[in-house]
Design a protein around this nucleic acid. Structure first.
Lengths: 339, 339
DNA sequence: ACAGATTCATGAAACGTTTCAGAAGAGCCG
DNA sequence: CGGCTCTTCTGAAACGTTTCATGAATCTGT
């Protein structure tokens, strides 16, 4: 593999000069610069980033570790992060843990060894071994979609308690009294918070008393939603409304209802969460709690960039905690149609 | 930042020994090994991968460069690739070009500088500057979802011509004579091939003559599909069936139809492509051409691993070209319902 | 007790860059 | 012409690992 030495020899200059041509072209005379560049072209020289990084000390890569790329919500987060990162001349690499703690830990270890410039974290783990070790590695990081005490790290999130409340209040106000909540794995703070919102909404609701059934789904995907839907169908008395922790779950529940011939929303109202693009295109367009996903990713990346820059120059970095507010988007799945 | 030296000093051994503890533990006595490990633990030492890679010569990262993560098809491809890569002890990083040629070129350059172990390529570019330079860098790579002559590189793809033919023949057999084809950007070979399949199906169809309108969408996403749907609605005489190069386009077209009150499939039959999970959950479940996405990714990664291993030991590597066959999944969007 | 194996630890070279102090030459001023 | 400054280039020292030849110490069998 051709290295900087080969270029130097061939162009009849020192390796320092070649390096300057690549990194600080203004320090090199027009003549030598073009000569060196043409040799680089000719030999197909590609700088070895590991050597560069070893010496220069910093990487130009920002990583994004997400819970599940199968959820379009996180794809939007990634989009936002890329916008901001590219603006700052950084490349973004995405790592998908698929909500597996061990995969997540493996990625965290890899990113730490890689000495990435910074990492955007959306992890399952909140205080396990893997995450802990990573945090001690000293690599700048920002939590995405999880609120974290401001003295520990920056974080950008959406108020999940408020979101859960929004959804449940909507169902309560529509007059439902037997309501189900299909929650995802409660190891996820998002799921716990949304449930807290649900509970709060019910606690503050005016009489009469509502009955809430909580169904725990095994995952946050469409298949788990179908399972939950089947269980829902078997209940008696059957709830008349269901709030799902996630649009994917909601889509699965919806499929189960459609297949079983249960009319939505007349016999079963459904509310999802995230307002992914496919929610509005579903068999029955889904009412959902919208989160500003792209903005979440962009803001997180901006915070991360600010942090990596500040730690270099000033001594101090003040962690920031940004919390966005979710918004309810009402569609047919909870709206009894006229006519 | 704590390095191998610090560990060595603190444990009272040489740096070579520390390295052995980490990489070839069997060469180190039980006693020193545990002592060194506990120091590593205590100091929170994390190996610097750039130094390691510089010396050891090879990375342990496989990259996947995809056209568009917003398309669940590619997320499935990524899933498959991860399965195979993890099996071989490699980490996968995903880079999303979003179909922008310049972003793509930037990622390719980054991956080359990074001296990644290998790259799975799903690019817009087929013979541009960026891709060319990357290929000359000598990093092993396998083309995913694009067939490439076997003397150039390995590739794993699905027969897009056959897929296009499958879809169009289905519409012809259902008796449609005014048919539209909503195609994506024709810079993509996938789109060109699917169109070729469409043409072939029409050419070989028995009389009467069919009329085909080709609409070029600006992207391969839902929004572009809505645009195309609007154009479709404005045509007169309006086609009675439409085949979309992509499920996302199809979902957009479907939305436009539903919004305009055009009944699907009675007034407008729709066929999509990819059979993403959301296709079956759509307002009207979509007929679609299914591709084995996960298998595509897995096979490609396996080929890549084989290539990286063979070039090390033997001198020869025989490029392989794998082509899968797509399959038509018929759903309500083309099936006139009984009753 | 001794040669030969075996086990374990060491020290230094190498990997391909970046960076920096300084040399060489050119241009300018008095 | 001597002393400046400027521009341009050089050579060597780092960066933090891995790896390998070498050496010291212990074990094995006779």
């Amino acid at each position: 593999m051709v290295g900087i030495k080969d270029v130097a020899r061939r162009a009849g200059v020192s390796i320092g000069t070649v390096s300057n041509v690549v990194n600080r072209p203004h320090l090199v005379s027009e003549a030598t610069r073009t000569r060196v560049l043409s040799v680089i072209q000719e030999l197909g020289y590609v700088r070895d980033e590991s050597a560069r990084q070893l010496r220069a000390g910093r990487s130009r890569i920002m990583a994004l570790l997400v819970l599940d790329l199968g959820n379009p919500f996180f794809v939007d987060v990634a989009r936002g992060a890329e916008q901001a990162a590219h603006g700052a001349g950084l490349s973004v690499i995405t790592c998908n843990s698929g909500q597996r703690v061990d995969t997540e830990a493996a990625y965290l270890a890899m990113l730490a060894e890689q000495r990435v410039r910074g990492v955007l974290l959306s992890t399952v783990d909140t205080e396990g071994e893997g995450l802990d070790r990573f945090r001690r590695s000293g690599i700048p990081h920002v939590f995405v979609d999880r609120k974290v005490p401001g003295d520990q790290a920056c974080s950008v999130s959406v108020d999940d308690v408020a979101g859960g409340e929004l959804a449940m209040r909507h169902l309560v106000e529509a007059g439902h009294t037997r309501i189900a909540f299909v929650n995802g794995p409660t190891v996820l703070t998002q799921c716990r918070d949304r449930q807290a919102g649900v509970d709060a909404a019910l606690a503050s609701a005016p009489p009469p008393q509502r009955h809430l059934s909580v169904l725990d789904a095994t995952g946050l995907d469409v298949a788990s939603g179908r399972d939950a839907g089947a269980r829902l169908l078997g209940m008696s008395p059957r709830p008349t409304a269901v709030f799902c922790a996630n649009d994917l779950l909601a889509l699965g529940v919806l499929q189960a209802m459609v297949t079983a011939g249960v009319r939505v929303p007349e016999e079963m109202a459904i509310v999802g969460y995230d307002d992914i693009e496919f929610a509005g295109a579903a068999a029955v367009p889904l009412t959902s709690v919208r989160q500003p996903a792209v903005r979440l990713g962009r803001t997180a990346a901006e915070l991360l960039i600010a942090e990596t820059e500040s730690t270099g120059e000033e001594r101090q970095h003040e962690h920031r905690t940004v919390v966005f507010t979710p918004e309810l988007v009402v569609r047919d799945s909870t709206r009894v149609r006229r006519g």
